[in-house]
Design a protein around this nucleic acid. Sequence first.
DNA 1: ATATCGATTATCT
DNA 2: GATAATCGATATG
Length: 214
Amino acid sequence: MPKSQISAAARIHPLARAFYARDPRRVARELLGKILTRQVAGGVRLTARIVEVEAYLGKNDPAAHTFGGLTARNSVLFGPPGHAYVYFIYGNHYCLNVSCEPDGCAGGVLFRALEPLSGVEEMARARGVELNGPKDLVKLTAGPGRLCEALSITRSRDNGCDLTSAKSSLWIGDDGTRARGIRTTPRIGVTKAADKPWRYLLNGNPFVSRPHFK
DNA sequence: ATATCGATTATCT
DNA sequence: GATAATCGATATG
């Protein structure tokens, strides 16, 4: 195989801001198969493929954190697209979103599950998980709270982070992989607008948080 | 395999 | 003072 193809497949390039300046449902669908990268101290790079996301609309979506308007917590979602919105939930967990739509509009996409690609040992340490076999890998990043813990994502560290720059410690890139078998279901854990099918996942991927949805 | 429940706190009413 | 875009443990079939 030509050398150029090898390096092309390995190279991850950041998604441009324009990618996020659209309807969150479109962004969510197209984020499947992309790569979330966490650069940690010591030059270690943690990477994981996005396999499950949910869209939250900037308008007319009662399940969205922005439904009631601008607050201190949700202000990043009202800002320019491509930035991290991190919130704390249930007294225990952080969840990661990326802001969508143009500046002033408040849509976003929640990251629900990732497939670990590199830095698995670091993720296991952050999660407090002992790795004894391939089956333990799903405990690392299958779930919005879990993936944040695996990548050490917190509100104080990462809220507002620019996810379009490879210079950021957290950013999103494309390695050329084409997502296949996209499925939609209602969103998990929401009590309002529970009928809207705005959860997107890679059908059959073992790292999805809830593969068997009723 | 599915159901239920407790933990724990930032945020908003 | 109530709620929440969750997780892990426990119970039961």
